[in-house]
Simulated assay, not measured.
Amino acid sequence: MARRSQALLASSLALVMAAVASADSWLNEKFNTDGTVRTNYDASGQQVAMLNLDRSSGAGFNSKEQYLYGEFSIQMKLIPGNSAGTVSCFYLSSGDGDWHDEIDMEFMGNSSGQPVVLNTNVWANGDGKKEHQFDLWFDPAADYHTYTIIWNPTNIIFKVDGNVIRCFKRYADLPYPSAKPMTLHATLWDGSYWATEKGKVPIDWSSAPFVVSYRSYSANACVSGGACHAGRDGWMSRQLDSDEWGTVRWAERNYMRYNYCQDGWRFPQGLPAECSRH
């Protein structure tokens, strides 16, 4: 009887774990993968997707659905140690054409001891060059941190661990991502020509393979040609309150590395029109 009870208990536990794994298999259910993408489950039953980068290729996953507005969030643990030249991403894109739309959170790898730079950018009708870059104020490889993009008809909000660091506002006479459905992507790739100190520091391949881990993905969004997922009321009309604008100013004052609206050399004919309206 004792052995039978133990066997039944073990079987029940296995079924529970299988149910938990199935319930949290967000990668399998919602994304296609490319390159070396490994998965496992953490102690709480959350699925973890690990992207690998080596000399032969990078890796990524992209959503099976396309979206038109939504709130998208994921937890990431970045590459420990010397990650110079690598780029880890969480972003939305309508494609690669000349008139594409895109909303980027790109993590540019660092030399050991230097901060990881988060590059945020917005593209509308092929018009980009709207970067705000921030030095992360924590070690993003030591643990998971939460990164969020909120995209609605009036603004695009970037958040780190619940803190708003940037808001890109819509103006009626200026390009804004509002008509092209976008696919959600996560990628890890060789950005040596661009990422670290404007390409001065390449990848040290002796440390490969490089691994970035993703977990706890969530999306409350409107599916292209279909319904909006639950939670639409929380983000469709979302704008910043005074406290959140204070957080934006805190991030800009203490951690901003680059602001396109202060780069007169890059725009000799004049800064983009939205720069004078914020």
Results as ranks from 00 to 15, higher is better:
Ser83Asp: 11
Ser94Asn: 14
Leu118Asp: 00
Trp123Thr: 08
Gly128Tyr: 08
Gly126Ala: 07
Thr33Ser: 10
Asp139Lys: 03
Ser93Lys: 10
Gly126Leu: 10
Gly45Ser: 09
Lys64Val: 12
Gln66Asn: 09
Lys30Thr: 04
His100Tyr: 09
Leu92Glu: 13
Thr39Lys: 09
Glu71Arg: 04
Gly95Asp: 08
Asp34Phe: 14
Pro80Phe: 09
Gly70Met: 02
Pro140Cys: 03
Val117Pro: 00
Ser88Cys: 11
Ser63Leu: 15
Asp96Met: 08
Trp123Val: 11
Gly60Pro: 11
Ser56Tyr: 11
Gly45Lys: 00
Pro140Glu: 06
Pro115His: 02
Gly60Phe: 01
Lys77Phe: 05
Trp137Pro: 10
Ser83Met: 07
Trp99Lys: 13
Asn119Ile: 02
Asp98Ser: 13
Gln66Ser: 15
Asp101Asn: 08
Asn121His: 06
Val122His: 03
Leu53Ile: 12
Asp101Gly: 07
Ser44Met: 11
Phe90Asp: 05
Ile79Thr: 15
Arg38Met: 10
Val122Ser: 00
Ala43Lys: 14
Ser73His: 03
Phe138Asn: 09
Glu29Tyr: 04
Lys130Asn: 15
Ala141Ser: 15
Ile103Lys: 02
Gly60Lys: 01
Asp101Leu: 07
Lys130Gln: 13
Gly60His: 04
Pro140Ile: 06
Asn125Arg: 11
Ala142Glu: 11
His132Thr: 07
Lys129Tyr: 12
Val48Ala: 14
Val48Gln: 08
Ile79Tyr: 00
Glu71Ile: 07
Gly45Glu: 09
Gly81Pro: 12
Val87Lys: 01
Gln46Thr: 11
Asp139Ile: 03
Ala124Met: 07
Asp98Phe: 02
Asp143Arg: 11
Ser93Pro: 02
Ser94Ile: 02
Glu102Asn: 13
Asp96Tyr: 06
Gln75Asn: 14
Val48Thr: 04
Glu71Phe: 10
Asn119His: 11
Ser94Met: 11
Ala59Asp: 13
Ile74Leu: 10
Val122Asp: 06
Val117Trp: 02
Glu106Cys: 02
Ile103Val: 13
Tyr67Arg: 07
Tyr67Lys: 08
Asp104Gly: 06
His132Leu: 01
Gly95Arg: 06
Gln114Ser: 10
Phe72Tyr: 06
Ser57Phe: 01
Glu65Trp: 07
Asn40His: 15
Ser57Asn: 14
Ala124Ser: 14
